[in-house]
Amino acid sequence: MKKASKIWLWIALVLCVCTTCLNLSEGRWLSVAIAVVSIAGLCLLLFRHQKLGFLIMCVCAVGSFVVGSVQNFADLGAVSILMSFIGSALVPGITGLFIKSQWNELK
């Protein structure tokens, strides 16, 4: 795996752990559960170089989008959908761009 990809994956890991801690402090248990699985996928990709890790991240991003949209819709309305989409798509989207050229090298 290229150095730039590893650097991004470490940054993504730190971001995801911080977000998980924030969700934990606010009592968003379903979001925490999804994030823990996503972090496990991120670790599979970073440390074991497995494609499955990225796929797990993508599935968790969809789950996170749905949960985030539903949890915040009463307070923010349609803005919650946009915010959830940005938050859910950011890490897997950037990760996909970094590993796109290396996809065949992954296990």
Rank of each mutant, 00 (worst) to 15 (best):
G87L: 08
L82R: 13
V62D: 05
V91Q: 04
A33Y: 09
C18L: 15
Q50G: 08
I34V: 08
L52N: 05
W10N: 10
L44H: 08
C60S: 01
V37G: 03
T95Q: 01
C18W: 14
F98K: 00
G27V: 12
E26G: 15
Q102I: 05
A40G: 02
V70C: 00
I86H: 00
A61E: 00
N104S: 13
A89Y: 02
V62W: 02
I7F: 09
V17G: 04
A89Q: 04
Q102G: 09
L30V: 03
M57K: 06
F85N: 05
V36M: 02
L90K: 00
P92L: 03
A35M: 00
L76S: 14
G63E: 08
S31D: 08
V17A: 02
I81D: 07
I81N: 10
S5Y: 04
K2P: 15
K107V: 02
V66G: 07
I86W: 05
V59Y: 03
L52T: 09
A74K: 02
K100F: 11
L30I: 12
C60E: 00
L15C: 14
L9V: 07
A78K: 12
S69W: 05
S25V: 12
V79W: 14
I7Y: 02
L46W: 01
G41R: 03
G68T: 01
F98Q: 10
A4R: 12
C58K: 02
F98E: 03
